[in-house]
Design a protein around this nucleic acid. Structure first.
Lengths: 311, 311
DNA sequence: GAGAAACCTGTTACCGGTAACATCGAGAAT
DNA sequence: ATTCTCGATGTTACCGGTAACAGGTTTCTC
């Protein structure tokens, strides 16, 4: 592996000049700068992360902490992880995965957290290194999807498609993302003078399926599900009861995890833009690391039209 | 963060003695050793990876390269990744994810590769740092599941359950894992004097579903699927045609990715023991890194009884 | 009981990089 | 012409850890 000394020697300058060309190119004369840059690309020099880490009192390593059950969220976990890694790699950082609540500070510069619950926020708020969470909570830098806007869009879609009864399948947990998804539905209903009808269930397609078997379904029903898993349960129940989807029952899920696979019909859904989320999380974390003060950000969900809504 | 110097100072010894207590404890007198160990745990000292990396001419970072389409294999990708990370973390390494064919050597000590195809092996064979692949190929250290044993078990199960016709749904690719899965089926068929019936399809539940709609199904059929996705398609087709599963049609998948979710009935399947696979991969890679010569390993698949086979 | 060997601990130098300071030459100011 | 300033580069020291060697005791050997 070629080191900064090799470059320095080859370019007949000191290591320090090479370092400057990389980190503060404006401090180096144009002539020497191009010389050195040429030698760098000629030798294929890449900075050694360990050396840089030691000199800068950094680790160039970020811990990604997954607090959700991995079985619950595999599909988007994998994608989020991939996008986070890519974004960090571009900045010379590695991503280390964890799935416990130790928040071990050794050899990491910051935390990216996914699936944090109320009970975690106290600890997260008092960590001595930067933290960015995926989700919403006052006091912690976060990136979140606009959940309310998502279900609002979904509900509007089903309203426009003339379904008479509009049902919301929510999750049986007390977390902001659930409350907000419900709020989006409520708002769309209220604006069009409809009575909301809300059921809370565990986030499981089988349970949703069974619940809807108990005479909750009828023709001309639109179902707004708080998650794709619930939406998938609704799809199965509809088909099982001989109700045509989307002609008699329309369904919109939330998350966008089943687009590529599995569903008997592809689910219309509110998709989480995972790449954008990952990039924003990394951007915020690195900004915090360089001492900037940052504010939480929201991303806009996108309605993906599948085969469970009309047209 | 407490450094080795802090420990040395507190324990009234040199840095070198502390280093020895950690890396070569047998070289230090019992008395001093316990002293130092006590100071270490008292101060909560943990080695700095960057310092260690620089001194040892290592990076303590491994690249995990995913060459499969992430959409194809999300579910087990997420789990494999988690187990790999855990195993490496125990040894002081981080795992860095990639999904391209660059095999960039900078800042990594070795590669773990998943989803490599024939065309990749030339490059992999000539990399100057250790590589362990998930799968089989002569010349490259690998960990693989015994695919043949898996389908052999699956086929035997369906034979024992008295299904008359036994169908194998294979994948339409020419890779060892496919050939071996087919071979396990063939062997079990041959040993019981049956005629194999094999169809090759793209690995997609919808395609399997449609294929089986064309009069390929009948009562008293056992289906051995080369993947869970094909198995899921078979399950849907059976149900759609009013064939009772498992009473009239028995189905066994392969991979174990749908155990926790999604299927209308849980799929009986040949499960890949991902934790064991991950641990073996890491163990082999680290052994190679310390100069030992290693040989590829196989892990034994386990039959998971779901609701698509009898009892 | 002297020399050798074994054992234990400390010292030095280095891994690759960068901050802080030192140096040097050229042009500006007076 | 002399000093001042500034821009460009080099030198030194250090980040945290470890290999290689040095030095000091103790134990063994005959």
């Amino acid at each position: 592996m070629v080191s900064i000394s090799d470059v320095a020697h080859e370019a007949h300058v000191s290591k320090m000049t090479v370092s400057r060309v990389i980190n503060h190119p404006e401090q180096v004369s144009a002539e020497i700068r191009t010389d050195v840059q040429q030698v760098i690309s000629q030798l294929g020099y890449v900075q050694n992360r360990a050396g840089k880490a030691l000199a800068n009192n950094r680790h160039y390593n970020i811990a990604f902490i997954l607090l959700d059950d991995i079985n619950e969220i595999e599909p988007y976990y994998a994608h989020l992880l991939m996008h986070l890694t890519d974004a960090l790699r571009n900045e010379g950082y590695t991503l280390e995965m964890r799935h416990d609540r130790n928040f071990d500070l050794t050899n990491v510069d910051g935390f990216l957290v996914c699936g944090a619950r109320h009970s975690d926020f106290d600890i997260l708020n008092n960590l001595p290194i930067p933290v960015v969470i995926y989700g919403t909570e006052a006091g912690i830098t976060s990136v979140d999807i606009d959940n309310k806007a998502g279900t609002y869009l979904a509900t509007q879609l089903l309203i426009n498609q003339q379904y008479q009864r509009l049902l919301f399948l929510g999750m049986a947990i007390d977390e902001p993302f659930e409350t907000n998804r419900e709020a989006g539905y409520r708002q769309a209903m209220q604006e069009t003078g409809r009575e909301p009808e809300i059921h809370h269930l565990p986030n499981n397609e089988q349970i949703a399926f069974q619940f809807l078997q108990n005479s909750h379904l009828s023709a001309n029903t639109g179902i707004i599900a708080a998650t794709d898993r619930l939406g998938l349960g609704a799809l199965r129940a509809s088909r099982h009861q001989g109700l045509a989807v989307p002609d008699e029952v329309g369904i919109v899920g939330f998350d966008g995890i089943y687009i590529h696979q599995l569903a008997e019909q592809s689910l219309t859904t509110v998709q989480q833009p995972l790449k954008e989320i990952a990039e924003k999380m990394v951007q915020l974390l690195l900004a915090e690391l360089s001492g900037e003060s940052v504010t939480s950000e929201y991303v806009v969900p996108e309605l993906i039209h599948g085969e469970t809504t009309i047209k």
